[in-house]
């Protein structure tokens, strides 16, 4: 499996009136062809911003990619011009957003919106594009695709809309699909269907998926490789079995412990004490130390570096020593 996208030392900062917010701080990750990368973390930890940085969808100002490289097919996207990046958006890299309810333009039919993407990026006229749009709707399991193609978003349920969004995202056979919490707004049964669908499509088309979520269940089901983020930094990175079997970083352990487990008689779920630090006023040393039960003196002074402790398992914590 070759590398499809690699992010190197990406820093995306937001320059607000109150100060600089380091939303993404020195993040490096790689997505291989046909792989699903799960990016996990609490709200506001920078996982969405990392994904949006790839397509330069950061609102600017106040946001700005300060430094770093995003290499996609041998080209650095951070240096791409507007028209170059527009050709990649929706074509080679497409996005599924969190809110299917509001991510479709209410005044156009589903078909119009899928057709627009196809006509824009592929050499097809409207009739061919319409055929393709209907095929895509069938592919994502929408019944009566011939009729739904002329339906307005408000006529469809949430699950149907999310399917339509996926159809739109997949219409140009993208190399990489960024799914930004694709199932958060859906109920559990629909969630399972959408995840099945995404996995099916991935296997059919060999598309890589960058799956952003805070739901560890979704990660366990979908991802091949997992990146755990905290306060704009990657704290742990490993493949999915390793993460669930042998989590190292206290934050990852905390996350896994706070997961609800069936057949367990418990009054309350475990939670990680404390709150995500204020991004304007990050603690010195390791960002996680105020909430960490294993915090040591060094944690308060020095920021740990991401180092590999095992083959393919990296962690940023002073508890572990790098293995050469």
């Amino acid at each position: 499996m070759g590398e499809l996208l690699s992010i190197k030392n990406l820093k995306t900062y937001f320059y607000t009136e109150d100060g600089v917010i380091k939303a993404v701080d020195d993040v490096s990750l790689t997505i291989r062809e046909g792989e699903t990368l799960g990016v996990v973390g609490e709200s506001g930890c920078g996982k969405s911003i990392t994904a949006m940085s790839i397509l330069k969808l950061i609102p600017n100002p106040p946001g700005k990619i300060v430094s770093g490289e995003i290499i996609f097919e041998g080209k650095d996207l951070t240096k791409a011009t507007d028209s170059e990046i527009r050709k990649i958006r929706g074509n080679k890299i497409s996005v599924i957003f969190q809110e299917p309810m509001t991510s479709l333009n209410p005044v156009f039919t589903i078909g119009d919106q899928i057709i627009e993407a196809i006509v824009l990026h592929q050499n097809m006229n409207r009739e061919q594009a319409r055929e393709k749009a209907i095929d895509m709707l069938k592919l994502v399991g929408i019944p009566r695709a011939n009729e739904v193609v002329d339906a307005y978003p408000h006529e469809l349920s949430g699950g149907m809309r999310q399917r339509a969004m996926i159809a739109m995202a997949m219409a140009c056979n993208p190399k990489l699909l960024i799914a930004d919490e694709p199932t958060t707004a859906l109920d559990v049964t629909i969630q399972a269907q959408i995840l099945d669908l995404m996995r099916e499509l991935k296997n059919k088309t060999n598309t890589s998926i960058m799956l952003i979520t805070h739901d560890l269940g979704v990660v366990a089901e979908m991802a091949d490789h997992v990146v755990v983020m905290y306060a704009g930094k990657i704290v742990e990175e490993a493949d999915v079995f390793e993460i669930f079997k042998n989590p190292l970083h206290p934050y990852t352990i905390g996350l896994l412990e706070s997961k609800p487990i069936l057949n367990q008689d418990k009054e309350r779920l475990n939670s990680i004490p404390g709150q995500v630090p204020n991004p304007l006023n990050m603690p010195e040393g390791c960002y996680f130390h105020p909430r960490c039960s294993k915090a040591m003196d060094i944690c308060r002074k020095e920021q740990p570096k991401l180092c590999s402790v095992k083959d393919g398992h990296k962690v940023a914590c002073h508890l572990y020593k790098e293995v050469k």
Binding site: R86, I88, Q98, L104
Partner: peptide, 22 residues
């Protein structure tokens, strides 16, 4: 500021098209 405009941007549309078509 609506989500569907972010989605439109992620499709790679030009500003002109975003303003007048969407």
């Amino acid at each position: 500021e609506q989500e569907f405009m972010q989605a439109a941007e992620a499709l790679g549309l030009r500003d002109r098209r975003k303003i007048f078509r969407h």
